[in-house]
Design a protein around this nucleic acid. Structure first.
Lengths: 350, 350
DNA sequence: TTGAAAGCGATACCAC
DNA sequence: GTGGTATCGCTTTCAA
């Protein structure tokens, strides 16, 4: 019931605490023996006693003394968002293999909470941070950098020196979605977006506009910007589609999954059908995209790569081996045209 | 760049470390003043210096000394599963309001990893654990209990004394789903499940069998058990439905979202339609359930309640105020028959 | 190979 | 109200 310390183990095994510390921290050499300056017999005894007594190292003490914790923190803006959840999962896997423990936390798009979380994490002596910054995160994250905590930004960019960055090229994603529709023969292509103003969205908008202009469709550019996740936003979407039919719109780009859901709902309510009445290019992943026939084209981000690259970068940063050009990783999104369930997804570049 | 300690603040403010500690831990009283035995002027000076120097408390040190960390750990079996992600989000919200920081981790259904995580968390001096145990978790969790770490089990049950438990009544959920279909006039009702053998699934199977027997349909009970998330499992599902048509089956209960997805896929492949060819009752939540017309009946678990109740129970456990009957919380699942998007979901009890 | 002893940065107890 | 100081459990010299 009460805590077993290194001293208890030392006393019971008849050795010094130093020895116990050595043994407990030794890693297995390739020859299956502990690579530490301890007599194998002694080591074995220590191990046995530690196990018998149920000893567990107190990380707080260890990390207080050593300044290392062998753990990193990942702070996303919403852990319940499958997009982030999947990144977290991959990240955790990679980090685990590298011997790091990952602590997750969710800022819920709340800068105060984010600040609190950063403080807590830094207080835990985590060796680095991977953060999907919410609005207003600059202050807290700059401070983290300033006290020497390596920090990698994912998904959204914010201004600031010293951050590592693993970002998806959202301008390219927007261009790709638009070009695909143009290639399909559509001209009256519109986009529904949020008023939010985060880089991931504004970049997609930019890509859309660019591609339209390049195709000589500048005058047909139409971006509807609705509120972020409110009931009004859902209703607003219905109105957009009601008018769209009158306007003769042919296709829509829905730059987030939620926007796609609002749109499906609108079609349902208005009695429209895909692809008879409109063509869509959606973003992210949804059961619906895959199950519709034909499959709804959707742009997916390389979640696995985001997890992997961000951890690798952070590790380099921690070990102070990151060159200036290592510090920005740009990834490409992919347009998926097929692949419901078992079938291989068909990827396309436009 | 280098770390600012409590001593630096004390020296700079011309007071003792004790004073600084008092001030840094003081909470705001309702009168907007710090409720600690410190001269307000002194306190203000300390606060100012702390801010100017960029002081942050070192949690490792604080928790080493006090044995408290004001943080809890939540370990789920798969953080990328929306079911768990949503629970985590709710949990975090409640805990945050109660002044606790939550650390999330994912065991990836791997008992070794779970053990490692429990050790790390305990090492961080977390004050309690909320765990969705994977298979083989008994050992690690019993040890946690034995060293006095309050632990609450969610989603799945495992044997063992001392755990708090917040579980959904899955037998009831199975009964509810079955009764609904019977009430709709179906008799040839089947279930597709996994070979897995975790309580959440076996209880749903049990509920199904019970309800069928009660309705005098004992001879029609048919449970197909497929492999867990393999390509073979998906294909197997197709065969099940091919045969089902010949057999004259009328309805299916799909006790997880993934099983529902396999089934939708099978219908697609075979050219069957809902509800023309079969009727479904699914589990969990999916964009598809809501968007189909009519909405596909599905059984949902009270995710918010699971988060809330498990934290509350853990807090009681930590404060040693949990009576024996507090330690088991049983929640009911709900059958949702309508409510795509904005509309209020229609709940039914059968 | 082994051990003694000096801290890491807070808190908590006790004096003043 | 304020300050001195003994820990918390571990890692890490440094000597033996």
């Amino acid at each position: 019931m009460k805590k077993v310390t290194i001293r208890d183990v030392a006393r019971e095994a008849g050795v010094s605490v130093t020895l116990v510390s050595f043994v407990m921290n030794a890693k297995m050499g390739k020859d299956g023996r502990l690579d530490c300056p301890v007599n194998p017999g002694t080591a074995a005894r220590v191990l046995e006693v530690a196990k018998r007594l149920g000893y567990r190292r107190n990380n707080a003490a260890a990390s207080l003394r050593s300044g290392k914790s062998h753990s990193i923190a990942v702070i996303v803006s919403d852990i319940a968002n499958p997009f982030f959840a999947e990144i977290c999962r991959n990240l955790e896997n990679i980090a685990y293999k590298a011997g790091y423990t990952v602590i997750f936390a969710s800022s819920e798009e709340n800068p105060t909470k984010l600040e609190h979380l950063v403080d807590t994490m830094v207080g835990f002596n985590v060796e680095g941070l991977i953060v999907a910054p919410c609005l207003g995160a600059e202050g807290a994250l700059s401070r983290a950098i300033n006290v020497g905590i390596p920090t990698v930004l994912i998904d959204r960019d914010i201004p600031g020196e010293g951050f590592g960055r693993v970002l998806v090229d959202n301008v390219d994603a927007g261009i790709m979605a638009t070009k695909y529709l143009i290639h399909q023969g559509f001209g009256k292509i519109e986009m529904i977006s949020y008023k939010l103003g985060v880089t991931s969205l504004t970049d997609r908008e930019l890509g859309y506009s660019k591609a339209m202009e390049e195709a000589g469709l500048k005058d047909d550019v139409m971006i509807h910007r609705i509120d972020y996740e409110t009931e009004a936003a859902r209703k607003c979407t219905i109105e957009i589609f009601r008018d769209a039919a009158k306007r003769g719109s042919e296709a829509f780009i829905l730059p987030t999954k939620k926007l796609a859901m609002y749109s499906f709902n609108a079609l349902n309510v208005l009695g429209f059908n895909l692809p008879k009445d409109f063509s869509f290019v959606c973003f992210d992943e949804s059961d619906i995209y895959d199950l519709k026939k034909p499959v709804i084209p959707h742009v997916v981000q390389p979640l696995e790569e985001i997890g992997e690259k961000s951890f690798n970068l952070l590790q380099k940063l921690i070990e102070e081996q990151a060159s200036q050009e290592d510090k920005v990783v740009s990834l490409k999104a992919k347009l998926v045209l097929g692949g419901h369930f078992g079938a291989e997804p068909i990827e396309a570049s436009f």
